[in-house]
Design a protein around this nucleic acid. Sequence first.
DNA 1: GCTTGACTTAAACTAAGGTTTAAGTCGTAT
DNA 2: ATACGACTTAAACCTTAGTTTAAGTCAAGC
Lengths: 124, 124
Amino acid sequence: MNYYSIGEAAAQLNVPESTLRFYEKKGLVTLIERDEAGRRLYSEHQMALLRTVMCLKNTNMPISDIQQYINWIVEGDSTIEKRLDMMLKHKQAVLDEIALMHHSLDGIEEKITRYTNKIQEALT
Amino acid sequence: MNYYSIGEAAAQLNVPESTLRFYEKKGLVTLIERDEAGRRLYSEHQMALLRTVMCLKNTNMPISDIQQYINWIVEGDSTIEKRLDMMLKHKQAVLDEIALMHHSLDGIEEKITRYTNKIQEALT
DNA sequence: GCTTGACTTAAACTAAGGTTTAAGTCGTAT
DNA sequence: ATACGACTTAAACCTTAGTTTAAGTCAAGC
């Protein structure tokens, strides 16, 4: 299998290395292998997990909730319903947030139109 | 003209009163009139400004940037180009953020599908 | 006359999500 | 051999965006 150093993993996930160490300490990602020298080796499997973590983080899930979700994954299939429930709720929260942003964007676009017109008028 | 007490304004904007006082201290909203007893009176004009502030806040603009924007409004028409520039950049930032959220949502929906299938299978 | 809702300042406090620092130790590549 | 990238712990520090507290004052309504 392919392994990534912390530097490679960080670059791929577009976060600082310090964040990966921080997430590890927080239990957002577990069981990272090490080479003989004690350096972290991120497997494809870990990278997939981290990509999931990033999906949740990018949609503003609090770290503590991501932690809970990861714990459920580690616990195994008995927690699938809980995970499904969490993801459904989170999806709705994200949709709500996107809707709010879209709505707010309307207000911003109105400003853009108004300013653009004003500048046009000033040039005539 | 119609005036609103801080309680009414807060309810209408869906924020705590403490936040309105905080924004005022920060200079996000200025020149709020007072009644004889010193209580804040929010005019329609102030409410409109505050709705703009909320649009920016709801799209995650930092308070310091909102402050700058409001300062420019107060300065008058000479700052219209700066405001237009700021709004155009902010619009792009918001669109980028929404795009990232949408993309991340795909990952979340994949989980939902997988968990749903697993639960279905388990029932057969 | 008392409760309610508003007001004041300044500072402390909170929560989230990291970042930085100190003071080192290792192993690998040039 | 020396620089590079990684490693350690623990605590201190940072920013953002408020919230809370203290210790009052003030005016209006019941």
